[in-house]
């Protein structure tokens, strides 16, 4: 209210200063200039995306072949494929989601369905916010100190999975909470009114209704796992390892670290370019493919709910 009255005062003065209604022209011109600039800004942002994607796809697609995807790197990574890096990334996804998904969903259920407005709840919410904002390299340091050194898992797939799962737990909690909030309270009430206990109501009514949202959030965090480099660099990713990890205690290759290594170290950076583009494209396809699937799932269920 206060704000509108300020506007009123100012405009009132300007109306008088410019002789009543004729002020329209000047203001219109300003508006046109401002709107053009705003539109250009938004288009610039979209332009960044198009340029980055187009560049990687254009340079990378010719490298992609069955051999590239299924063969070990050869000749100091100047030839051959990226098979172990793909497998490593897939294992990271499975391992870290296996830990983070159940934990994140359970924490979100507690916060949304059980927690009262207590000091403890506030503390938990604050911890989640802070974990969500902590840089991934700090998670890497923590994983190194706790899992690699203190617990003694060593530089390994296991340490890296656990570190990544800590990184995405806040993401999963937040998206699950959002999905749970979106479930109408009427569902809970009418199930409780049928003499169904609270947990059974959550299990049979609330969770099924929230599943699309939970899936969407999980898929986005899978993308995060696939793309993170700094944490695995410190906890178990191998510079070069032309075989698959044979246990959860072995080191592994992963797509993002492989791309980093190819692009920055080694003796044949320029000669290696095609393989770099190919690796970037495979990584990008995995992450963006997951994003697109998430968007489609969300859209599908939104339409379904609108019947």
């Amino acid at each position: 209210m206060e704000l509108s009255s300020k506007v009123y005062e100012k405009d009132h003065k300007s109306i008088r200063a410019q002789g009543g209604l004729s002020m329209g022209l000047n203001a219109r011109t300003n508006e046109r200039i401002a709107f053009t600039l705003l539109t250009l800004s938004a288009m610039t942002v979209a332009g960044f995306v198009v340029i980055i994607l187009a560049y990687i796809i254009y340079n990378g697609y010719s490298v992609i072949s069955i051999e590239f995807l299924t063969e070990m790197p050869r000749m100091r990574m100047t030839q051959g494929g990226i098979y172990p890096a793909i497998v490593g990334t897939v294992l990271l996804i499975i391992g870290s989601m296996g830990v983070a998904l159940p934990m994140g969903v359970m924490a979100a259920i507690y916060l949304n369905e059980y927690a009262g407005e207590t000091r403890t709840t506030w503390l938990i919410e604050m911890a989640i916010n802070n974990l969500a904002g902590t840089p991934s390299v700090v998670f890497g340091l923590f994983g190194l100190a706790l899992f690699v050194k203190y617990v003694g898992f060593g530089s390994s797939l296991l340490s890296a999975c656990l570190t990544l799962s800590l990184l995405i737990i806040p993401v999963i909690i937040r998206s699950t909470q959002e999905a749970l909030i979106a479930v109408p309270n009427e569902y809970r009430d009418s199930s409780l009114a049928l003499g169904i206990s609270k947990w059974q109501t959550i299990r049979h009514v609330v969770l099924p209704a929230a599943i699309p949202g939970i899936i969407t959030g999980s898929i986005l965090s899978i993308g995060r796992v696939a793309g993170e480099t700094a944490p695995i660099l410190l906890t178990g990713a191998a510079y070069f390892l032309p075989r698959l990890p044979d246990s959860i205690y072995s080191q592994f290759m992963a797509l993002p670290y492989h791309l980093f290594v190819l692009a920055t170290s080694g003796t044949n950076i320029t000669q290696n370019r095609p393989i770099q583009y190919g690796t970037a494209l495979v990584l990008l396809s995995i992450v963006l493919g997951l994003n697109i699937i998430a968007v489609l799932i969300r859209r599908h269920y939104r339409q379904k709910l609108q019947i």
Binding site: F35, L38, T39, A42, V45, A46, F48, V49, V50, I52, L53, Y55, I56, L220, G223, A226, G227, E228, T229, P256, Y257, L259, F260, A263, T264, Q276, A280, L283, L284, V287, L288, L290, N291, V295
Partner: peptide, 30 residues
């Protein structure tokens, strides 16, 4: 400002931008 349809079309671009791994940004920058 944007027409709702334009806004809806722009949002996926921003989601994609958020999803691109930092190492890919680094590679592109390089």
């Amino acid at each position: 400002i944007a027409h709702p349809k334009v806004a809806d079309a722009l949002k996926p671009f921003i989601e994609i931008l958020a999803g691109i791994p930092s190492v890919v940004f680094g590679f592109f920058g390089l």
